[in-house]
């Protein structure tokens, strides 16, 4: 059996009167890529914020590398469990200032060669460094957001719809990059995607969530042969 990087035990979370995460029990295997799929409003992004400590569960327990999440210092936790959000928010300033942000927060600076290498890895040219981050296209911002998350060298990387605004070529580049990082550093990856082909292609494992519940989980092949009736409908595209 694979070791678990993250374990959920009967986790519940509510906000503004809505029960968003319902009794989730499951695990994300260490060093593997797990894809997280499900219709909109299934609670996938909220699950990420629970893993990164941006929210705390109302009940149940989350273990990160075997330790209860609330025993971690929140800052240390967020550096170890990186998250690239779908919004790919940029701060005012250059690409370099955005890329350097995780280090600026620690009063450090980034080495120029390392910055260029990171940009190259996500498919952006080194001369982008001086450009205004606000002027980048949606896809370029998304790539920069991934590079920025990598600066902290996280053990676990949470990727929220990171290729949804990219063209096919860029999507392929990012998929290759994620596989490369996963193989090279053994980084645990959890990837929310709407693209079931991508989930099958990239994921060693898959979680299917619906309406705040974990419906099925296991090797990604479960998407080809789902057991649950609702998952069958979702895979056929009958549930959006």
């Amino acid at each position: 059996m694979n070791q678990a990087a993250i374990i959920f035990q009967d986790v519940n979370y509510s906000a503004e009167g809505l029960h968003i995460i319902k009794n989730i029990t499951g695990f994300f295997p260490e060093g593997k890529i797990t894809t997280l799929v499900g219709p909109s409003g299934a609670g996938k992004s909220t699950l990420f914020k629970l893993c990164n400590g941006l929210h705390s569960p109302d009940s149940g327990e989350i273990l990160i590398k075997g330790k209860p999440i609330d025993t971690y210092n929140p800052i240390e936790l967020r550096r170890r469990v990186g998250i690239a959000l779908q919004s790919a928010t940029m701060i005012k300033g250059s690409v370099l200032e955005n890329l350097e942000l995780p280090l600026t927060l620690q009063e450090k600076t980034i080495d120029k060669e390392y910055a260029e290498e990171l940009l190259h890895d996500v498919g952006l040219a080194g001369d982008f460094l001086k450009r205004n981050a606000m002027d980048l296209s949606g896809g370029q911002k998304q790539k920069l957001s991934i590079a920025r998350t990598l600066v902290n060298k996280p053990d676990i990387l949470l990727l929220d719809e990171i290729t949804s605004s990219l063209d096919r070529v860029s999507q392929h580049d990012i998929e290759e990059l994620i596989e490369k990082i996963n193989k090279k550093y053994g980084t645990t990856m959890i990837w929310i995607t709407h693209n079931l082909e991508q989930a099958l292609r990239i994921g060693h494992f898959t979680w299917v969530m619906m309406n705040g519940e974990l419906i099925e989980s296991g090797e990604s092949s479960i998407l080809e042969n789902p057991q649950d009736e609702r998952v069958k409908q979702f895979v056929k595209g009958e549930i959006e």
Partner: peptide, 16 residues
């Protein structure tokens, strides 16, 4: 709010 959340996710303090 997005900016606040971004800095927290990257390991920044509330003050930052």
């Amino acid at each position: 709010q997005d900016e606040t959340e971004l800095i927290l996710t990257l390991g920044g303090t509330p003050r930052q």
